[in-house]
Deep mutational scan, measured.
Amino acid sequence: KNAAKIVNEALNQGITLFVSDNKLKYKTNRDSIPSELLEEWKQHKQELIDFLTQLES
């Protein structure tokens, strides 16, 4: 999976991924984040940080 797909899947579940101080963060109104999503974010962390940083610049 690529970073764009992961970010879109998160958005579809009401979760916004973003970068703050070079760290991957998220915002959501959900009570909890599915563990498989958290695991996927960890596996692709640097790719996600790079992707989101490019989007914001």
Rank of each mutant, 00 (worst) to 15 (best):
E56V: 12
I15H: 03
Y26Q: 03
K23I: 12
H44R: 05
P34C: 03
D21Q: 07
K42G: 09
E36N: 11
E40S: 09
T28N: 04
E36Q: 10
I6T: 02
K23Q: 14
K27H: 13
L52D: 00
L38Q: 06
I15G: 01
E9R: 08
Y26W: 15
K1W: 12
N22G: 15
I15V: 07
I49D: 01
E9G: 04
K42S: 15
I15P: 00
L17G: 00
L38K: 06
K27Q: 09
G14F: 03
I6E: 00
L52E: 00
L11Q: 10
F18Q: 03
L48C: 01
T28L: 03
G14W: 03
L48P: 00
V7A: 04
L37H: 03
I49K: 04
E9W: 05
V19I: 08
P34R: 04
K5S: 14
L24A: 01
Q13L: 15
R30M: 11
K25F: 14
Q46C: 07
P34Y: 03
N2H: 12
N2K: 11
N22I: 03
I49G: 01
K25N: 09
A3M: 11
V7E: 01
S20F: 11
K23E: 15
E39N: 08
S32I: 10
P34I: 03
T16P: 01
K42V: 13
A10I: 01
E9D: 12
K1H: 09
Q54S: 15
L55G: 10
E9Q: 07
Q54L: 09
E39Q: 12
L24N: 00
L37Q: 04
I15Q: 01
S20W: 09
K42I: 13
V19A: 05
V19D: 00
V7I: 13
S57M: 13
L11R: 10
E36L: 07
A10F: 03
V7M: 05
N29H: 11
L24F: 03
S20I: 15
S20M: 11
K5F: 10
Q54M: 13
A10Q: 01
Y26G: 02
L24E: 00
K1V: 14
F51M: 03
H44P: 00
H44A: 06
S35G: 10
F51T: 02
E36S: 12
L24T: 00
D50T: 11
E47F: 05
T16N: 06
I6K: 02
N12M: 15
S20K: 14
T28M: 04
L38Y: 08
Q46D: 14
T53W: 06
A10V: 01
A10W: 02
E39R: 08
L17K: 00
D31S: 08
L48S: 00
Q46K: 11
D31T: 12
N12V: 13
H44E: 02
N8P: 01
I33K: 02
L24D: 01
I6F: 04
L55Q: 14
S57Y: 08
K1P: 10
K1Y: 13
E47H: 06
E40I: 14
N29D: 14
